[in-house]
Amino acid sequence: MKSNPFFLFLAAMLLGGCATIPPKDYTLYRQSNPRSILVLPPVNESNEIIAPYSMLTTVTRPLSELGYYVIPVVLADHLLKENGMGLPAEMHQAPLEKLHSVFGADAVLYITIEQYGSKYQVFASNTIVKARAKLLDARNGTEIWQGRVDFVAQGQSGLLEALVTQVLNKLVDQAHMTATMASIQLLTMPGQGLLKGPRHPEYGKPSP
């Protein structure tokens, strides 16, 4: 049994648990040591118009609970729009020093949504939110973190039910709920997400 490679593999899987992805290198992150984060409205590569604002309104909580100050997202969005940046893609092109001087944030979070919404199958529906993100130090432009998430929530609703308007409405909210989960996973997953920030009691302690 000992020499059985399959058994060894199985044991390794069991011992390793779900930590199959090696933790990220946080050297640059620690050097940058941001206290506050400006989250720009995400760029949308999905077909769902609401996707950027669905995702944007789900990131404040996980980031704040990690110990960062999040520049109020709606105010920031409106101010950028008033300054001629109607689309997230334009906001993502804004010069970093300008963003830093206007909002005073130490870092800027750029999110791109790759997929958002429900896929109907005969017996089930999957709601998917797929996104990538990067965090730049707003003072010098260094990329201090990047991550991605591919979150799938499995629903019970079938194709027939999905034809009923009421259920469809429910599914729209299900997409937003899925975006909420996706944001939490993207930003807070230990070893992959952001480190604890200055307002967190565990700030500066070595991550598990």
Partner: peptide, 16 residues
Amino acid sequence: LYYWGNYENINYLAYA
């Protein structure tokens, strides 16, 4: 760390 009430939901609703 904080009390979270309607903030995120109302922000989402204002857009959606």
